[in-house]
């Protein structure tokens, strides 16, 4: 008897990862990141001009718990492309600098400095409100 207990939050997170080609779980939102690591990851994505979905994990600690147990990754931010975990801030930054991130995202590498504040407007898609799925 190994029936999985219902877990709507976990399902909502899995669904968001599946339905959005590029999705970032972060603290705060792209317009107002609440953590330097999330800010740096948003900046890398924005400077490549790629649209991405964003989920704020701060509204409920369960979002982060479920995400981490799903992804087997303990820290925030977490970037997924095509349903696969690309990594956190360190990996995204490193891949941005080597040009690999542009490759993974299928865009042209940007000449901008990774530390610089990019001018590109935010993601495109409005932030996803995972916490609405909480019972």
């Amino acid at each position: 008897m190994s029936e999985q207990p219902e877990n709507p939050l976990r399902d909502a997170i899995a669904e968001a990862i599946r339905d959005n080609d590029v999705i970032l779980f972060m603290k705060g939102n792209p317009e107002q990141p609440m953590c330097g690591f999330s800010a740096r990851t948003v900046a890398a994505l924005q400077s490549l001009g790629t649209p991405f979905a964003a989920v704020d994990v701060l509204p409920d600690p369960r979002i982060r718990q479920e995400l981490s147990s799903l992804s087997n990754w303990p820290t925030i931010p977490q970037l997924f492309v095509g349903g696969e975990l690309i990594g956190g801030c360190d990996i995204v930054t490193e891949m941005y600098e080597t040009g690999e991130l542009a490759g993974v995202l299928g865009v042209e590498a940007a000449p901008a400095e990774p530390g610089g504040a990019p001018e590109a407007e935010a993601g495109g898609a409005p932030p996803i409100q995972i916490e609405n799925r909480l019972g």
């Binding site: 087997n72 990754w73 975990l85 690309i86 990594g87 956190g88 360190d90 990996i91 490193e94 891949m95």
Partner: peptide, 8 residues
Amino acid sequence: LSRVQQHR
């Protein structure tokens, strides 16, 4: 290992 695996 991939970077993700290395960090894990």
